[in-house]
């Protein structure tokens, strides 16, 4: 491998992951042959439009795919241990302890009938042998470190007594409690006010750095990731269409889909909400066209694109793209 980030020993290595849902109306290949590596301390953005399979990747890593879904194949190697084949009781020890997850909507990810303290304490009870006083101290420290004042009193409060931004801070605190090595944050700021979004992102980045953890930041918003992540993996219809270091991807992507995503980032200097939007809609994942899945929406499509499925291959710098005619490689007319 030529990429610098892949020469380090990866903490997480996802290989040819396939997670399919066997629904009444057909097989939904939500994740189909997805591979990526994540080194210790690295932050990866997992981006793509809604329905691209980002959340399913996250839940697959945690072994939280419920029927009718199933991991059909591939490997999820955490320090060399294949989680795709790990039994439930082993996965239970990994969840929260080695890999923690942060959900999209902080209004619904905390249990409304339990106090914040109880929900934090549960994490430590499950994964440490600390005594009650020590657990309590750790919870208070953790709340303080995510910027919640009067932490001691807050332990007795219920989720509905907090604002959305505060709740997401609590969720982050819970996720960091057992010092996991990997955080999977599934659109952690999407449900929050714009003004709070960047605060929360900065907080997450700092927390991850402080604990020397790695993070997969799932988002459909490329603007969000570019400030935070080291590298980007772009998913479309359950497949990786492009990946590479963040600078290369943002400044000069080689896949037309990534280009479209970047062009639709709202420009903060203008009132206008969107510069452009990728035309068309995501195809029905149960019924994908032959050839390239992006063909119907792609401005660069040619005859070959309808016949042959493009494979992920190196293009420029750190970039890999699944495209017959990647941008900036001579194919430009």
């Amino acid at each position: 491998m030529t990429m610098q980030s892949e020469s380090r020993d990866p903490l997480l290595s996802v290989r040819d992951l396939r997670t399919w849902f066997h629904t009444f109306s057909g097989v939904v290949k939500a994740v189909n042959d997805v591979s990526f590596d994540l080194a210790q301390g690295e932050i990866m953005g997992l981006v793509g439009e809604s329905g691209g399979g980002k959340s399913v990747v996250g839940f697959s890593i945690l072994g939280l795919i419920d029927p009718p879904g199933r991991i059909e194949g591939g490997q999820i190697l955490l320090d060399g241990e294949d989680l795709a084949k790990a039994p439930e009781d082993r996965l239970r020890k990994i969840r929260g302890r080695e890999i923690a997850m942060i959900f999209q909507d902080p209004m619904t990810s905390l249990n409304p009938v339990h106090t914040i303290g109880r929900q934090m304490d549960e994490m430590l009870r499950l994964h440490t042998d600390m005594d009650e006083a020590a657990r309590r101290r750790r919870c208070i420290e953790m709340l303080e470190s995510v910027g919640i004042s009067q932490a001691e009193d807050r332990l007795r409060a219920y989720p509905h007594q907090f604002s959305g931004g505060m709740r997401q801070r609590v969720v982050i605190a819970i996720a960091m409690l057992a010092h996991p090595r990997l955080i999977i944050a599934d659109e952690p700021t999407t449900a929050l006010d714009v003004t709070i979004q960047s605060q929360i992102l900065k907080l997450m980045k700092r927390q991850v750095a402080d604990h020397g953890a790695s993070m997969i930041l799932v988002t459909h918003d490329l603007a969000v990731v570019s400030e935070v992540v080291d590298k980007i993996t772009v998913l479309y219809c359950g497949q990786v269409v492009e990946r590479g270091d963040v600078r290369d991807v943002i400044s000069a992507p080689s896949h037309p889909y990534t280009r479209g995503l970047i062009d639709s980032i709202p420009n903060p200097d203008h009132r206008q909400p969107r510069l452009s939007q990728i035309p068309g809609t995501v195809p029905d994942i149960r019924n994908l066209p032959k050839g390239c899945n992006f063909r119907d929406r792609c401005p660069r499509a040619q005859a070959l694109c309808a016949q042959e499925e493009p494979k992920l291959a190196p293009t420029r710098q750190s970039l890999f793209a699944a495209c017959h005619f990647p941008i900036g490689t001579g194919g430009d007319a």
Binding site: T108, S109, L126
Partner: peptide, 15 residues
């Protein structure tokens, strides 16, 4: 169907 059920499982709580 609620998120907090999945969040609890993601914490490592048994089914």
């Amino acid at each position: 169907r609620q998120d907090y059920m999945k969040f609890a499982r993601a914490k490592g709580v048994s089914r």
